[in-house]
C-alpha cells in the first residue's frame, strides 16, 4: 500500500482501494511471492489504525502468509487483524513509544505473530532508529541505537525483524549489506532486509553478504521492473535456497 493508493482522509474512496489491494494480492500470489506485507505507512503519524475491512478479503484469496502493519497500538487491534486471517502483525512506532507492548503481544499471541519493523538511519557512522517514518513532517529520531533496539526487542519476544535501511530506501542502489550483516550477528530470529532493491543482483548480494532470511521489496515489483518468477529463477541459479516457481495445477 503506497501513497497513491491510500486515501487522503476521504473515506468513500476506501472501496476503490480495497479493490486495488485484492488485485495486487492475487497478482503476487499467482507470481508465487513467498509472503506479502501490507503497510499503511500513514497510520501511525495520523494517530489512527489501519482500516481492517480488507484484511479478511485478502485472507480469503491468499494462500501464502501475510503480515499487516500500521498503527497497531493495542492487543485488541492485533487480535482483530489476526482473527481476520492475517498471519502476523508488524509494529514499529508504537513499540518505540512503549517497548512493553512487544512483550504483551508476544505473551498473548506468541512470538511467531509479532514482527518488529525497524527504520534505521545512518548519520556519521552511527545507526539510529526513526519513528513515524510514513510522514516526513512527523518523522523523528527515536534516540535509540539500531542494534541495541533490535536486541532488546527480541528479548521482549519479537519473532521477526524487518530492517528498513532508510538511507537506501527508494534509491535502488542495493540493500545496506554492511548494516544488515552487523545486525544478523546479533539477531537470533528471522531477519528480513528492506530498502534499496533495484536489480536482481541486489537480492543475490543481500542473501550472500548479509545472510538474511528474506528480502522485502516494493517499488521494483509494483512497477513490474522485476518479475518474481524471473527473480526466483535468477536466485536459484545462484545457489540461493529459495522456494522455486512451480507450475500451476
Amino acid at each position: 500500500m503506497r501513497e497513491g493508493k491510500v486515501v487522503k482522509g476521504v473515506r468513500f474512496r476506501d472501496h476503490r482501494i480495497v479493490g486495488d489491494i485484492i488485485e495486487l494480492a492475487e497478482r503476487y500470489c499467482a507470481d508465487q511471492a513467498d509472503e506479502l506485507v501490507f503497510y499503511d505507512i500513514t497510520a501511525s503519524p495520523d494517530g489512527r489504525t489501519v482500516d481492517r475491512s480488507w484484511v479478511s478479503r485478502v485472507a480469503a484469496v491468499l494462500d501464502i502468509p501475510f503480515c499487516v502493519a500500521g498503527g497497531i497500538r493495542t492487543i485488541a487491534d492485533a487480535e482483530e487483524i489476526l482473527n481476520q486471517g492475517a498471519d502476523k502483525i508488524s509494529i514499529n512506532s508504537p513499540a518505540l513509544e512503549d517497548p512493553e507492548f512487544i512483550t504483551r503481544l508476544a505473551r498473548r499471541f506468541g512470538s511467531q505473530c509479532v514482527v518488529l519493523g525497524v527504520d534505521s538511519h545512518e548519520l556519521q557512522g552511527r545507526y539510529e532508529v526513526y519513528r513515524n517514518t510514513g510522514d516526513p513532517t512527523k518523522m523523528a529520531s527515536a534516540a535509540r541505537e539500531t542494534v541495541s533496539w533490535i536486541v532488546e526487542a527480541q528479548e521482549r519476544g519479537a519473532g521477526e525483524i524487518v530492517l528498513n535501511c532508510m538511507n537506501q530506501d527508494g534509491v535502488r542502489q542495493g540493500y545496506d549489506c554492511g548494516q544488515l550483516a552487523a545486525v544478523r550477528r546479533r539477531c537470533n530470529v528471522p531477519l528480513i532486509a528492506s530498502g534499496g532493491a533495484g536489480s536482481m543482483q541486489h537480492f543475490a548480494d543481500v542473501f550472500d553478504r548479509a545472510g538474511v532470511d528474506g528480502a522485502l521489496a516494493a517499488s521494483v515489483f509494483h512497477s513490474g521492473e522485476i518479475r518474481i518468477p524471473d527473480l526466483k529463477a535468477f536466485l536459484s541459479g545462484r545457489q540461493i535456497d529459495i522456494r522455486p516457481v512451480s507450475k500451476p495445477e
Binding site: N188, V189, P190, G211, R243
Partner: peptide, 30 residues
C-alpha cells in the same frame, strides 16, 4: 545463527513414506 528459532518460512520436505496424503506431492516441494 543459520537456523533461527522460531523456524518461520518456506522449507523443502523429503518424502520417506507412501500414503494417499502425498498424492502429487514430492521431495523438494516447499
Amino acid at each position: 545463527p543459520e537456523t533461527p528459532v522460531p523456524n518461520m518460512g518456506w522449507c523443502p520436505i523429503r518424502c520417506c513414506g507412501s500414503h494417499p496424503l502425498l498424492d502429487g506431492i514430492g521431495s523438494g516441494d516447499y
